[in-house]
C-alpha cells in the first residue's frame, strides 16, 4: 500500500505499543482505558468492596449473631459487638454481613431473570415483526401502565407467610422484564437493517444464526448495561417492599432491618449504631451501581465514547 516516507513521518509513536492481541497489549490497553474512565474503576471498587465485606466478613464474624436473642438488647458498640446490638438482641455487624449478601443476591437474581426473559421476548418481537410483534408490544405496553408497587404489594401480602428472600426475587422478576423487552426490541429493529445482516442473509445464514451470531454479540454491551440498571431497580423494589414489612420475616435483609428500625422507633431511642450501617451500605451499593453503569455506558455507547 502507500508507505511513502511522508506517511511514516506523519505518525509518531509517543508511548509503548505492544503487539496487537498479545497479553501485554491487552493489559496496556485496558489500563489506558480505565485511566480515561475513572467512573468505571470507582464503581467497581465500591461494589467489589461490598462483596468482599460480605464474603470475607463471614470468616471473621459469627453469622449466627444475625438472629434475635443472640446477644443482649440495644447495646452500643463494644469490643464484643463492634457495631452493637439491636433491641431484639441481633449483632448488627453480623446482620450487615448477612443482609448485604441477601439484598445483593435478590437484586442479581431478579435483574438476571428480567433481562433474560425481556431480551428473549424483545428479540422475537423485533426480529420477526408482524403479528408476534404486535401482540408482544401490546402486552408490554399494557403492563407498563400497571404501577409495579401495587402489583408487588398485593402479591407479597398474599405470600407473606413463609416468604424467603429468594421468593422475593422471583416476585420482583415478574415485572422486571417489561422494560428490557421494549428496549431490546427497538435495538433489534435498528440492527435488523444493518448491512452486515443483509450480507449474512446473502451468505446463506439462517434467521436463527443471524439473531445469535450477528446481532446478539453487538447487543452484549447494551445488555450488560441494562443488567446493571435492572439490578439497581430490583434492589430498590425489594428494599421498598421490605421496609413496608412485606418482606421475608425471618431473614435479616437490609430492607427488613430498615423495617425493624422503624418498628422499634430507633430514632427516638437514639440507636445510631443500628440506623447508620444499613443506610451506608445501601448508599455504597447504589452509588457503586450507578458509577459502574455510567462507566459501561461510556464503553458501550459510541456517542459518549472518548476517542482512543
Amino acid at each position: 500500500m502507500t508507505t511513502s516516507p511522508t506517511v511514516q513521518t506523519r505518525v509518531e509513536t509517543i508511548a509503548e505499543e505492544a503487539e496487537a492481541g498479545s497479553l501485554r497489549g491487552v493489559i496496556l490497553g485496558v489500563g489506558r482505558y480505565l485511566r480515561r474512565n475513572p467512573q468505571l474503576i470507582v464503581g467497581l471498587i465500591l461494589l467489589l468492596g461490598l462483596v468482599a465485606f460480605t464474603t470475607i466478613g463471614r470468616l471473621f464474624v459469627d453469622i449466627a449473631g444475625a438472629h434475635p436473642l443472640a446477644g443482649p438488647a440495644s447495646q452500643p458498640p463494644s469490643a464484643e459487638f463492634p457495631l452493637g446490638t439491636d433491641p431484639q438482641g441481633r449483632d448488627v455487624l453480623a446482620v450487615m454481613v448477612v443482609g448485604a449478601w441477601l439484598t445483593i443476591r435478590t437484586g442479581v437474581i431478579a435483574g438476571f431473570i428480567g433481562i433474560l426473559a425481556g431480551s428473549a421476548v424483545g428479540f422475537v418481537a423485533g426480529y420477526y415483526g408482524g403479528w408476534a410483534d404486535r401482540i408482544i408490544t401490546w402486552i408490554v405496553d399494557v403492563l407498563l401502565t400497571v404501577p409495579a408497587i401495587l402489583f408487588l404489594v398485593i402479591i407479597s401480602a398474599m405470600l407473606q407467610n413463609g416468604l424467603t428472600s429468594f421468593g422475593m426475587a422471583l416476585i420482583i422478576a415478574l415485572l422486571a422484564w417489561r422494560r428490557p423487552a421494549r428496549q431490546v426490541r427497538s435495538q433489534i429493529l435498528v440492527m435488523r437493517e444493518a448491512g452486515y445482516v443483509e450480507m449474512a442473509k446473502l451468505s446463506g445464514s439462517s434467521g436463527f444464526s443471524i439473531i445469535f451470531k450477528e446481532i446478539a454479540p453487538n447487543l452484549m454491551p447494551y445488555l450488560i448495561s441494562s443488567f446493571i440498571v435492572a439490578v439497581a431497580a430490583a434492589i430498590l423494589a425489594s428494599v421498598g417492599l421490605e421496609a413496608m414489612g412485606l418482606g421475608p420475616q425471618n431473614e435479616p435483609t437490609l430492607g427488613m432491618t430498615v423495617y425493624w428500625i422503624m418498628q422499634f422507633s430507633a430514632f427516638l431511642l437514639g440507636l445510631w449504631w443500628w440506623i447508620l450501617p444499613p443506610v451506608l451500605i445501601l448508599i455504597v451499593l447504589f452509588v457503586g451501581l450507578y458509577l459502574l453503569n455510567a462507566g459501561l455506558d461510556e464503553l458501550a455507547n459510541p456517542r459518549l465514547r472518548k476517542r482512543t
Partner: peptide, 23 residues
C-alpha cells in the same frame, strides 16, 4: 451483492475474515 457502504457490510464484532469464511 456488493453494497454501497463498505463499512456497514462488515459485522464490527468479528474480524473481516468472517465475511469470507461464513459463505
Amino acid at each position: 451483492a456488493i453494497f454501497q457502504d463498505p463499512y456497514g457490510s462488515f459485522n464490527p464484532f468479528y474480524k473481516v475474515d468472517r465475511a469470507l469464511s461464513l459463505p
